[in-house]
Design a protein around this nucleic acid. Structure first.
Length: 111
DNA sequence: AATGTGACATACC
DNA sequence: TGGTATGCCACAT
């Protein structure tokens, strides 16, 4: 209540904690924050990440399907794939390969 | 101020 | 098996 962006701030923090070469899902973050049903807000936070002064690796966040649904919101529609590929994450048809293996669950990793 | 929309997820039909 | 409906919260108009 201090700030309406409290949720956003938490999301950004978690996203920044995502290790290189790993990916996570909106629902995982939302759940970690305590609101699994607020997954939409997580996605919205990514959209607001542009307002954040610090860089937020939003490219490491994908939907539950492992699909790069938000790549269109990046600087370039290919920036997300490129960024992921640079980190060693293979992307095919806008879908993260071995997403299940590369999946980084904050609720478990940050436990 | 109120309504609508959205980078999702889950449930139900 | 897939489309529809609802929940969640913040932002845009």
């Amino acid at each position: 209540m201090d700030s309406k962006k409290d949720f956003f701030k938490d999301v950004f923090e978690v996203v920044r904690l995502i290790p290189k070469g790993r990916v996570t899902s909106y629902g995982a973050i939302a759940k970690y924050l305590g609101s699994a049903k607020s997954s939409r807000v997580v996605g919205y936070a990514m959209n607001a990440s542009h307002s954040e002064k610090k860089h937020v690796p939003a490219h490491r966040v994908v939907n539950r399907n492992g699909m790069l649904t938000g790549k269109h919101h990046f600087q370039s529609p290919t920036a997300m794939e490129e960024a992921l590929l640079i980190e060693g994450i293979l992307v095919k048809k806008d879908v993260v390969i071995d997403f299940k293996k590369l999946f980084w669950d904050p609720a478990k990793e940050l436990l």
